[in-house]
Amino acid sequence: MTRFPRRHFLAATGAALFTPAILRAAETPEIRPEADGVRRNTSSFRRQDWREHFDSLGKAAIVADTTSRALHFWSGDGADYRIYPTSVPMTDELTKRGYTEVVRKKVGPDWTPTPSMIERNPELKYMPPGPDNPLGTHAMYLSWPAYLIHGTHDTRKIGRRSSDGCIGLYNFAIEELFALTPIGAQVRFI
């Protein structure tokens, strides 16, 4: 008689129970608010079509969707499309919408709070690159002053309204996006 070890039984049972959830997670359904009106921190993003936002891809194109809290990237030839979860501005007053472009990129950015940030929190001070820096490991500066797409060391911020206007990504995600995105890439905040 062949013996079926208990751990194999448990692994097989667990896999059978979670398979439907894994299959649902692989789909890209519309983001649906919960019944109580609160949007949960999920990664069920709706795919975007770059043609809805730009006349051409140019060097590359990025859409920062502040509603779904996702950043969409397309390479200049359209062969590479990626979606990243993001943090977004805390309030609509801090949210700028429209078209801009990547004008500068920096590994190990330093951070200086803006006067309006200091007004809201007088304890904020300049921060050199490092683990306490709110810009994380990489930053892409936009043609709008004080607006960036950057990393964050505080992973609790991703998927939430937590920034003062910038779009934040996990450090591993901004490192990947940074390598893919050329200076001059077009960006749209919606």
Score class of each variant (00 low, 15 high):
residue 1 M to Y: 05
residue 3 R to F: 08
residue 3 R to Q: 07
residue 3 R to T: 09
residue 4 F to M: 06
residue 7 R to P: 02
residue 7 R to Q: 12
residue 7 R to N: 08
residue 9 F to N: 00
residue 10 L to Q: 04
residue 11 A to Q: 06
residue 12 A to K: 05
residue 12 A to M: 05
residue 13 T to K: 05
residue 14 G to A: 11
residue 15 A to R: 02
residue 18 F to K: 03
residue 19 T to C: 11
residue 19 T to Y: 10
residue 20 P to H: 07
residue 20 P to I: 01
residue 21 A to C: 11
residue 23 L to M: 14
residue 26 A to L: 15
residue 26 A to Q: 14
residue 27 E to W: 14
residue 27 E to D: 14
residue 29 P to E: 13
residue 31 I to H: 11
residue 31 I to C: 12
residue 31 I to G: 11
residue 32 R to W: 15
residue 33 P to Q: 08
residue 34 E to I: 11
residue 36 D to V: 13
residue 36 D to R: 08
residue 36 D to T: 09
residue 37 G to R: 05
residue 37 G to L: 10
residue 38 V to Q: 13
residue 39 R to L: 15
residue 40 R to G: 10
residue 40 R to P: 03
residue 41 N to G: 09
residue 42 T to K: 13
residue 44 S to P: 06
residue 45 F to G: 05
residue 46 R to D: 14
residue 46 R to E: 13
residue 48 Q to P: 05
residue 48 Q to A: 15
residue 49 D to M: 12
residue 49 D to A: 13
residue 52 E to G: 13
residue 52 E to H: 14
residue 52 E to D: 15
residue 53 H to C: 07
residue 55 D to A: 12
residue 55 D to E: 12
residue 56 S to D: 15
residue 57 L to H: 04
residue 58 G to L: 06
residue 59 K to I: 07
residue 64 A to C: 13
residue 67 T to Y: 14
residue 68 S to W: 08
residue 70 A to R: 08
residue 71 L to S: 01
residue 74 W to S: 01
residue 81 Y to I: 07
residue 84 Y to L: 03
residue 86 T to D: 03
residue 86 T to K: 03
residue 87 S to P: 01
residue 87 S to D: 09
residue 90 M to Q: 14
residue 91 T to E: 06
residue 92 D to A: 15
residue 92 D to L: 15
residue 94 L to H: 08
residue 94 L to W: 09
residue 95 T to F: 08
residue 95 T to D: 12
residue 96 K to R: 14
residue 97 R to E: 15
residue 98 G to S: 10
residue 98 G to D: 12
residue 99 Y to F: 13
residue 99 Y to E: 10
residue 102 V to E: 01
residue 105 K to G: 07
residue 112 T to N: 09
residue 112 T to L: 12
residue 113 P to K: 02
residue 113 P to A: 06
residue 114 T to F: 06
residue 114 T to S: 09
residue 115 P to T: 09
residue 116 S to K: 10
residue 117 M to A: 07
residue 118 I to R: 04
residue 118 I to L: 10
residue 119 E to S: 10
residue 119 E to H: 10
residue 120 R to Q: 10
residue 121 N to Q: 08
residue 121 N to D: 14
residue 121 N to T: 03
residue 123 E to I: 09
residue 124 L to P: 01
residue 124 L to Q: 03
residue 126 Y to H: 15
residue 127 M to V: 11
residue 127 M to N: 09
residue 129 P to I: 02
residue 130 G to C: 08
residue 131 P to Y: 04
residue 131 P to E: 08
residue 132 D to V: 08
residue 133 N to C: 05
residue 133 N to Y: 01
residue 134 P to M: 04
residue 135 L to A: 00
residue 135 L to P: 00
residue 136 G to L: 00
residue 142 L to W: 00
residue 145 P to A: 09
residue 145 P to Q: 05
residue 146 A to Y: 07
residue 148 L to K: 03
residue 152 T to G: 01
residue 154 D to W: 06
residue 155 T to R: 14
residue 156 R to E: 14
residue 158 I to F: 02
residue 158 I to W: 01
residue 161 R to I: 04
residue 166 C to Y: 00
residue 166 C to M: 00
residue 168 G to C: 06
residue 168 G to T: 11
residue 169 L to F: 00
residue 170 Y to K: 03
residue 170 Y to N: 05
residue 173 A to E: 15
residue 173 A to D: 15
residue 175 E to N: 12
residue 176 E to D: 15
residue 176 E to F: 06
residue 179 A to H: 13
residue 183 I to C: 10
residue 184 G to F: 09
residue 185 A to I: 01
residue 185 A to V: 01
residue 187 V to R: 00
residue 187 V to W: 04
residue 189 F to D: 02
residue 190 I to K: 12
residue 190 I to A: 13
